[in-house]
Design a protein around this nucleic acid. Structure first.
Lengths: 226, 226
DNA sequence: TACGATGTTGACGCGCTGTCAGCTTTTCGC
DNA sequence: GCGAAAAGCTGACAGCGCGTCAACATCGTA
């Protein structure tokens, strides 16, 4: 059963009407169904992943929470992995503007950028309804981590920001690759502890991380040029 | 077929002999077989995980690389996850003494401890024949991460070391939880890039990480007490 | 040697995977 | 509107991995 069946249109629009409205921005019924099905699968996936964990969920679990037949799943995704990646990328896309806002509000202030960026990330982690959040909070020993092209693009953006500030502040002996890696590692590890409740105070954690990175960069600069 | 079958003993030792030698340190045949079977499964697992990745391997793949029947697997492990955890824990156990050596050779020198510890970790990652190494080097988007009790114990040990140094150096405003998390995050993220060849110079990376942590801690201390 | 105890074996029932022939719904030209 | 073609949904199916277990083999012991 396609998910649009329940809301089958009662309109009596002519074919011409439909053609015209499609030229506007109303999509054809076929298009609508495809969007709705995809969305239904994604939403079901989000729920099931949160309930059963990545390893524990099967394509069948996802499709069962849907009104679709099992075969239909494969018209939209190749595997549960692809569903998860799509959900993950959604999260990345939602976070990206927050990082940009941090950069713009900080101007030339490296410290302000770092504090804002870390705090934005930690708040995002704790509040956004992303797949990753509930799954990371599960007390599993075997966890899953995703490096989609989307994530990697985000890291590259961060790296560009970091290079800009490093240039500005004459940190010419600080390898940007290592610096970015450190920022990402710190954010991930502290974020993980926030999600598990081992750490509570988000602003304090953000300040810690920011000062840590600032002090760390300067120390590396002075040691490496010596 | 049990793996000892091929090397069935030709000894004519009496029952008394066997009992006595068992009281020494020769194990009984039963015991030997169990050890050999377990070792065979672990070794097969190591190979298969490296070839197919964590997600890609099945219990059947592991047992097929062995002379054992499928049912036998479950006398030793509950799942492939347990096999992986055992392999992972082996790695942790091999690394632990290296961390201790770093602590002892450093004496009261925090900087020396950090440099030695990071370098030991990076060298270990790149050279030790651990499951994690080959798997991390695979160009997958979906990766797996393990927090076994064994790993967590290692982190706790590291945290204790860090607390000791932090006390020594009057870093009383630096949250040890956050500091440990940062060290672990930096080590993991830089280690990951080493494994993927994005970073090459191990000693340089170790110095970077060490100076970064030192400078970061001091900066946090001065900012937080202000 | 004989007899429990211990451990191994592989076939089995179950559930998941990805596919595909058949069917339903939508689109579109007339 | 109508009818044919295109699009896409459906669920049964073959293949395979899972964990179990009754039957069997081997070991330990007296």
């Amino acid at each position: 059963m396609q998910v649009l069946r329940a809301m089958k249109s009662t309109s009596v629009s002519t074919q011409k009407d439909r053609a015209e409205s499609r030229e506007g921005n109303q999509a054809g019924k076929r298009e609508q169904t495809k969007l709705a099905n995809r969305a239904a699968i994604l939403e079901a996936g989000r729920q099931i992943f949160a309930e059963l964990g990545y390893e524990g969920t099967t394509v069948r679990d996802i499709i069962r929470r849907t009104e679709l037949a099992s075969g239909t799943f494969y018209n939209y995704f190749k595997s549960k992995e692809e569903v998860f990646h799509a959900l993950h990328d959604d999260g990345v896309a939602r976070f990206k503007p927050l990082l940009r806002a941090a950069r713009e509000s900080a101007g030339q202030d490296f410290q302000a950028f770092m504090i804002t960026a870390f705090e934005a990330y930690f708040n995002f982690l704790m509040n956004d309804q992303s797949v990753d959040r509930e799954m990371a909070a599960m007390p599993e020993w075997t966890r899953v981590r995703f490096d989609t092209p989307e994530s990697l693009a985000l890291f590259d953006e961060l790296k560009a920001d970091i290079i800009a500030f490093a240039t500005e502040f004459k940190l010419d002996h600080v390898d940007p690759e290592l610096l970015t890696a450190s920022c990402v590692g710190i954010a991930q590890e502290i974020g993980d502890r926030l999600l598990r409740g081992r750490i509570k105070d988000i602003p304090a954690a953000a300040r810690f991380a920011a000062y840590f990175v600032l002090g760390g960069s300067q120390r590396v600069q002075s040691e490496m040029q010596a």
